[in-house]
Simulated assay, not measured.
Amino acid sequence: MHVVIAGGSGFVGGYFAKMLIEQRHQVTVLTHSDIAVINARLEKHHGLSGKVNLISYDDYNGEGDVLFNFAGESFGAKAITTRRLNLLLSSRLDIINKFKSLITLPPIYVQASAVAIYDDKGNGEIDENSPTNGDNEIAELTRKLEAAAQELNERFNFKHFYIARFGIVLHRNGGFIKKSAFTPPFTILHAENKVPFIELHDTLNALMLMTEGTLPSGPVNLVSPQSATLKELLACCFKHSKLPPIPIMTGFLKLGDRRMILLKADQDVKPNVLLQHGFKFYTPDISKVD
């Protein structure tokens, strides 16, 4: 199988490319960056130098069996100010518009999105059929992204079309946990709000299901069956720290940084599509994350 990954040098994309190569699939990574730089990054973190076909978006002609679109500026890399919020959206829409200009695309298309699109006020369980009525700026960004992907689907009429709605992806070697290593350990008083998460290996296995087209087209929640409380999430991030966590109040969180929206939200999101199709989670709750 030939799998094309837009954004394949990022956290999830890089590990997914490695899994695909190990299973003897052909992998093409699309990039805006210098190909030599991306090749060096994939080699350093995943040992993939020479094993992945790297091409620019301008040189991509729509080939492949499956197209995963993880492309766009990272949500976690920097504080999300008003200016950066616009960049997060435009960097994603630009890639979708490039795909729209092509004559053909692979028959299976997967668009990365986020559970932030759902209600975040703690109003009970949420699944793929729940309203996408989150009322914050990140939810609005996500709705615009998904609308653009739907337009792409209308243009190409994909055999399988997936919206992969991610919770926070956890792994010791990247993402939220690794970024936490650069801050002093802390906990937040009264942080009992539920935060959807998924361990990296469960994420990769779920994405593999999409390459096979075994799930019905539509949204798929990439979250663990058991949401963690924010307090549990922070304890997981700092569990190997030798320093005791510093308790703080939520009022000390930086209000100008929209990343705090994701941590202060209260969402009990369930992966019903995966569960209904027999998917086995190896890390079903936060206590199982190493």
Rank of each mutant, 00 (worst) to 15 (best):
Y162S: 03
G14T: 08
G50L: 12
P271G: 15
F75W: 05
K100M: 02
N153Y: 02
F238P: 01
Y15L: 10
L102F: 03
L170W: 02
L204C: 04
T214W: 13
K288H: 11
F68E: 13
K254A: 14
N157V: 07
F161S: 02
K51L: 15
L152W: 07
L274G: 11
I96D: 00
Q111A: 08
M210L: 13
G213I: 14
L204N: 00
L234I: 01
R92F: 00
Q267R: 11
I21N: 13
Y118L: 00
K100Q: 02
L30W: 12
P247T: 08
L93D: 04
S227C: 07
L189Y: 09
A6W: 07
F176H: 06
E137P: 07
E199I: 04
D127H: 14
I126P: 00
E232P: 08
A112Y: 13
P247D: 05
D34L: 06
K270D: 02
A36V: 09
D266V: 03
H277A: 03
I21L: 13
T203C: 12
M260H: 13
N61C: 10
H240Y: 10
I5E: 14
R84M: 10
R259L: 05
R41P: 13
I286V: 02
A36F: 03
G218M: 11
G72W: 04
N153P: 04
L262K: 06
I168H: 07
A206Y: 01
I96S: 02
P185V: 04
S49D: 06
L233T: 03
R259I: 06
E73V: 09
L54V: 04
E22H: 14
F279H: 11
S90L: 09
D285H: 15
I168C: 08
R92A: 05
E73K: 08
I163H: 01
V110C: 04
I286Q: 02
A40S: 14
E125W: 07
Q111W: 09
T283N: 07
R172E: 06
A139N: 05
D135F: 11
H277I: 02
G175D: 09
R258I: 03
R258M: 04
F75M: 00
I117G: 05
I38V: 15
A139T: 09
E199K: 00
L87H: 04
L200N: 05
A206E: 06
L230H: 10
K194I: 14
I95T: 01
L204S: 07
F166Q: 05
E192I: 03
F70V: 06
T142V: 11
N97C: 00
V223T: 14
A181Q: 12
T283P: 01
N123W: 09
L222Q: 10
L209F: 11
I188N: 10
L243W: 14
V115Q: 03
E192W: 03
L243T: 14
G256L: 11
S113C: 11
I248D: 05
E151D: 00
S217E: 11
I177D: 04
N205A: 11
D285V: 12
R143N: 07
F99A: 00
T211C: 12
I5H: 11
V273A: 01
A71H: 02
E140P: 08
S227K: 06
V169R: 03
E146L: 00
G174F: 03
N133P: 12
L42N: 15
V52C: 14
I5M: 14
A139Y: 08
A40G: 08
V27R: 01
A149Y: 01
G251E: 10
